[in-house]
Simulated assay, not measured.
Amino acid sequence: MKPVVIYTTPICGFCHAAKRLLDGKGVAYEEIDVMRDSEKKQEMMQKAGRHTVPQIFIDGAHVGGCDDLYELERAGKLDPMLAA
Rank of each mutant, 00 (worst) to 15 (best):
Tyr7Met: 06
Ala28Asp: 13
Arg20Gln: 15
Cys15Ala: 12
Cys15Ile: 02
Ala84His: 11
Arg74Pro: 00
Met81Asn: 11
Pro54Met: 13
Glu39Thr: 12
Arg20Gly: 05
Val4Gln: 04
Lys2Thr: 04
His51Val: 10
Cys15Ser: 13
Phe57Leu: 08
Pro3Asp: 15
Lys25Thr: 01
Lys41Trp: 11
Met35Asp: 12
Glu30Cys: 04
Ile32Gln: 08
Glu30Val: 05
Glu71Gly: 04
Pro80Val: 07
Ala28Tyr: 04
Thr8Gln: 10
Val27Glu: 07
Ile58Gly: 05
Glu30Leu: 15
Ala84Glu: 15
Met1Trp: 06
Ala18Tyr: 00
Gly49Val: 04
Gly60Ser: 09
His16Ala: 14
Gly76Lys: 03
Cys12Arg: 01
Lys41Phe: 03
Ser38Tyr: 00
Cys66Thr: 00
Gly76Asp: 09
Gly24Pro: 01
Val53Pro: 05
Pro54His: 08
Ile56Arg: 07
His62Ala: 13
Ala75Tyr: 04
Met35His: 09
Pro54Ala: 13
Gln46Arg: 13
Lys19Trp: 01
Cys12Thr: 01
Gly49Trp: 04
Ala28Phe: 10
Ala61Val: 13
Val27Leu: 12
Glu71Thr: 03
Asp37Cys: 05
Tyr7Cys: 11
Thr8Ala: 14
Thr9Cys: 07
Val63Ala: 12
Gly24Glu: 11
Val63Leu: 06
Met35Tyr: 09
Gly65Val: 01
Lys41Ala: 10
Asp79Gly: 06
Met45Val: 07
Thr8Glu: 12
Asp37Phe: 01
Glu43Ile: 03
Gly26Leu: 02
Leu69Lys: 03
Arg20Lys: 13
His62Ser: 11
Ala75Gln: 15
Asp79Trp: 01
Pro3His: 14
Glu30Met: 12
Lys25Gln: 13
Gly26Trp: 01
Ile58Ser: 02
Ala83Met: 09
Tyr7Glu: 09
Val63Ser: 09
Asp37His: 07
Asp59Leu: 08
Asp37Asn: 15
Asp79Val: 07
Asp23Ile: 00
His62Trp: 03
Asp23Lys: 08
Leu82Lys: 03
Lys2Met: 08
Met1Phe: 07
Ile6Arg: 09
Ala61Asn: 13
Asp59Trp: 09
Glu39Phe: 05
Gly65Ala: 08
Gly26Cys: 03
Lys19Gly: 12
Gly76Ile: 00
Ile58Phe: 11
Ile32Arg: 14
Thr9Gly: 15
Gln55Gly: 02
Glu73Gln: 14
Pro80Thr: 06
Arg36Phe: 13
Ser38Gln: 14
Ala83Glu: 11
Met81Lys: 14
Glu39Pro: 00
Cys15Thr: 02
Val53His: 05
Pro10Arg: 12
Glu71Val: 05
Val34Met: 13
Tyr7Trp: 05
Arg50Val: 07
Lys47His: 12
Asp67Tyr: 05
Asp68Tyr: 06
Ala84Phe: 00
Ala75Arg: 13
Val53Ser: 08
Leu69Asn: 10
Ala48Thr: 05
Ile6Val: 10
Met44Thr: 03
Glu43Lys: 03
Met81Thr: 00
Arg20Pro: 00
Ala75His: 10
Val53Leu: 10
Leu78Glu: 11
Pro10Asn: 10
Met81Tyr: 02
Gly13Asn: 06
Ala18Ile: 02
Asp33Trp: 04
Asp79Lys: 06
Ala75Phe: 01
